[in-house]
Design a binder for these strands. Structure first.
Lengths: 229, 229
DNA sequence: ACCTGAACACCGTTCAAGT
DNA sequence: ACCTGAACACCGTTCAAGT
């Protein structure tokens, strides 16, 4: 108890990189994509912009660190089960992370398209790729299989989050799916026959079930590829 | 000749939405992602910001229109061949468009993650999905198959463009692949065994060949899925 | 070493005023 | 109906000055 008290007395008020990143994540979570500015950040941390720039090079680095932290946590799944099971688990974990932090979809897309050599992209590739290696494919298809899985996971999860976000907090899944369906039906039938054809299907699907179905047939394609070689 | 002259005399100086979008695309092409501002745009069009706002609601709408225009052109491939061939052709067309307009990768990611109900996303889904429908799958997997293909295509093409861009204009493919490979090898070997394992492979691969290999095994997965049903 | 906060350059957007 | 351009609110970033 004495040490407890002493510990809590040792004030951790000092600004650190971690505290800044933590605050950034909280702001993004509560106020969305545009909620993180140096104004909101300095208000929350009760400092000036200069103090933040002492710990962080610029806003891009801050966004990368915030994204990286959330992603790293999501990728820390217990390593048991077959490679296939673990890939599924990682996919769901990323899916849930994007669902929980809607800004993550946009940020991940950004990291992939303008900062592929940063920390986030290698981390995701490594995590999925390590399991892909366990599938017994020829080495020549490791990268392409990993790439297909990663792009599908992030794309599908991100789109799901985008839809969910645009539906608003109070609206439930069914209403939002109905809205998507209706949006597609509003498009011209001649120009968009396919979207009209699947509009009904979208109304009554299960997001996660459909999501994992996509994973499964990418895996099926990989396996087929293996037997063909 | 007379009509020729008269035609060129009929000055098309008037500001139109199309001219604005056209100028936006040119600015993005020549100056990259950050090259489009209202300042550069008004300078090029010799007007004030108010004139642009008369034709376009805001910058987001302008970016959507610019993206949509380039995408629509890329998707206009001649409709002959098997569904499989046409999917491949569309994929390459999008790949090339992103390669030619590097800003497109980021913009497409943005459209998908924050504006999925705009014009761009439905257009791409429709275009790929229409061919997926021709593959003879059960209707229940149309959407998921299309989704996997679209996300893979945009993700892989975008990443390729991002890499190519970060390599710079003067640097050739081999040097840039070498740089990627080296970047991965700089990562800790314990934390990133997979990236180390494929670092060599990346050095001597063919982008387009690898890209279409990904398409092919997603298609293989889809077909496998069909026979399993 | 770490923080303050005024100042700077730039950005998207608005709007009263013109034609 | 279409355009002008000054003005506004806001943004990321810098830096001389403090402790």
């Amino acid at each position: 108890m004495a040490t407890r008290t002493r510990r809590s007395q040792r004030r951790t008020d000092a600004l650190t990189r971690e505290r800044i990143v933590e605050a950034a994540v909280e702001l993004l979570d509560s106020a969305g994509d545009g909620g993180l500015t140096f104004k909101t950040l300095t208000e929350r941390l009760k400092t000036g912009p200069g103090a933040i720039y002492w710990h962080v090079a610029n806003k891009d680095e801050l966004l990368e660190a915030a994204t990286d932290g959330v992603v790293a946590a999501a990728l820390a799944v217990e390593p048991d089960g077959t490679p296939r099971d673990e890939i599924r688990a990682l996919a769901f974990s990323l899916f849930d992370a994007i669902d929980e932090h809607p800004w993550l979809g946009t940020q991940l897309a950004m990291q992939f398209s303008r900062n592929p050599w940063g920390t986030v992209v290698p981390r995701i590739f490594e995590s999925i790729g390590r399991r892909v290696r366990g599938l017994g494919l020829p080495e020549s298809s490791w990268f392409i299989a990993t790439s297909a899985l990663v792009h599908y996971i992030l794309g599908a999860a991100g789109q799901n989050a985008a839809n969910a976000r645009s539906a608003g907090r109070g609206v439930n899944r069914a209403e939002f799916l109905d809205a998507t369906s209706k949006a597609w039906e509003r498009l011209s039938r001649e120009d968009y026959p396919f979207l009209h054809a699947i509009a009904d299907q979208v109304r009554e699907h299960d997001d996660r079930e459909q999501f994992v179905a996509g994973i499964d047939f990418i895996l099926a394609g990989v396996i087929t590829d293996r037997s063909a070689t």
